[in-house]
Amino acid sequence: RRRVRAILPYTKVPDTDEISFLKGDMFIVHNELEDGWMWVTNLRTDEQGLIVEDLVEEVG
């Protein structure tokens, strides 16, 4: 499975499927959606939700 790491922190918009995260958080990518969004699991918090790919980098 594809893994990505947050390069910046992010605070979710209330009442959306987004998740908040810290710089350095690792995610497993489940689905890549339109307009650069990804459905992921945050490995630190075990939370699932949407993040935008501009805020993460690939992990080898």
Rank of each mutant, 00 (worst) to 15 (best):
V59Q: 07
V56M: 10
Y10E: 02
G49I: 01
W39N: 04
T41N: 04
G60F: 14
V40P: 00
E47L: 07
G60Q: 13
G49C: 02
K23Q: 12
V56W: 03
N42P: 01
L55T: 06
T16K: 04
E32C: 15
V13P: 06
K23C: 13
L8R: 10
R3T: 14
E34D: 14
G60H: 13
L22S: 08
L43E: 12
D15N: 12
Y10H: 12
R2M: 07
R2A: 07
N31M: 14
A6E: 01
L33H: 11
V29L: 04
V29W: 02
R44G: 04
S20C: 04
I28E: 15
V52M: 10
N31S: 13
I7A: 05
L8A: 13
V59H: 07
T41D: 03
K23V: 11
E34F: 14
D54P: 06
N42V: 02
V29T: 03
W39Y: 09
R2T: 08
I51C: 05
T11A: 08
E34T: 14
K12N: 05
N42Q: 07
I19R: 00
Q48S: 11
V56H: 02
D25C: 02
T11N: 12
G49N: 00
E47P: 01
W37R: 13
W37N: 07
T41P: 01
Y10R: 07
V52N: 13
T16Y: 02
F21C: 07
G49H: 01
G49K: 00
E47M: 07
V59Y: 11
R44C: 11
E18V: 05
M26G: 04
G49T: 01
S20K: 02
S20T: 08
K23I: 10
S20W: 02
L55F: 14
Y10N: 05
N42I: 03
V4F: 07
E58T: 14
R5K: 10
W39M: 07
Y10G: 04
V56N: 01
H30L: 15
D17K: 12
D46I: 12
G60V: 14
M26V: 12
M26L: 13
K23E: 11
R5T: 08
P9A: 12
Q48Y: 08
R44M: 08
D25K: 00
V52Y: 14
R1T: 15
I7S: 06
R5L: 07
T41M: 06
F21Q: 01
D54I: 12
Q48E: 07
T45P: 02
L33A: 12
V59E: 08
G60E: 12
V40I: 02
G36D: 04
L43G: 03
E47T: 06
M38R: 04
D25T: 02
E58D: 13
I7T: 09
V29E: 01
D35P: 07
D17T: 11
V29R: 01
D17N: 12
D25I: 02
W39I: 06
L50W: 14
V40H: 00
K12I: 03
M26T: 12
L55E: 03
F21L: 03
D17L: 13
D25Y: 02
W37K: 13
F21K: 00
F21G: 00
E53Y: 13
N42R: 03
I7N: 06
V4L: 08
V13H: 12
K12M: 06
M38L: 13
V40G: 04
E58Y: 06
T45C: 02
N42M: 08
F21W: 03
L22C: 14
G60R: 10
F27I: 03
D15P: 04
L33C: 15
W39D: 04
M26K: 06
V52H: 12
M26E: 09
F21M: 04
P14M: 09
D15R: 09
I51Q: 01
E58L: 07
E18H: 05
V59I: 12
E53P: 12
G36Q: 05
K12S: 11
G36W: 02
V4R: 04
S20M: 02
V29Q: 02
W37C: 10
Y10P: 04
E18K: 03
Q48M: 09
A6Q: 01
L22Q: 13
R2F: 05
R2K: 11
Y10K: 06
E32L: 12
I7K: 12
G49F: 02
G24V: 02
D46R: 15
V13S: 13
L50F: 09
T11S: 10
T11I: 13
I19V: 08
V52E: 12
R44S: 07
L50C: 14
D17M: 12
L8F: 14
V40D: 01
N42H: 07
I7M: 09
R5E: 04
E53S: 15
Y10V: 03
E18W: 04
E57D: 07
K12W: 03
V29I: 08
I7P: 02
N31C: 15
P14W: 07
M26S: 07
I51P: 00
D25H: 01
R3F: 10
T45S: 08
N31P: 01
L43K: 04
R5V: 11
G24D: 09
V59D: 08
N42S: 09
I51F: 00
Y10F: 05
F27R: 00
L22H: 09
G49L: 01
L33R: 14
V52D: 12
L50T: 09
T16P: 01
D54E: 12
D54S: 12
M38Q: 03
D54L: 11
V56R: 01
L8I: 09
T41E: 10
M26W: 09
K23R: 11
T41I: 08
I51D: 00
E53W: 15
D54H: 13
L8T: 09
K12T: 04
E58I: 08
L8N: 11
G24W: 06
D54W: 13
I28Q: 07
L33V: 12
E57L: 07
D46H: 14
I51W: 00
E32W: 07
I19G: 01
V4H: 02
T11G: 05
R3Y: 13
L43Q: 09
H30V: 10
E34A: 15
L33T: 10
E18L: 06
E58W: 05
V40C: 07
G60T: 13
R44V: 05
V29S: 02
E57Q: 09
S20N: 07
E18P: 02
D15V: 05
Q48D: 09
R3A: 09
L55D: 06
E34H: 15
T45L: 03
N42E: 01
P14E: 13
L8S: 11
D15Y: 12
D15E: 09
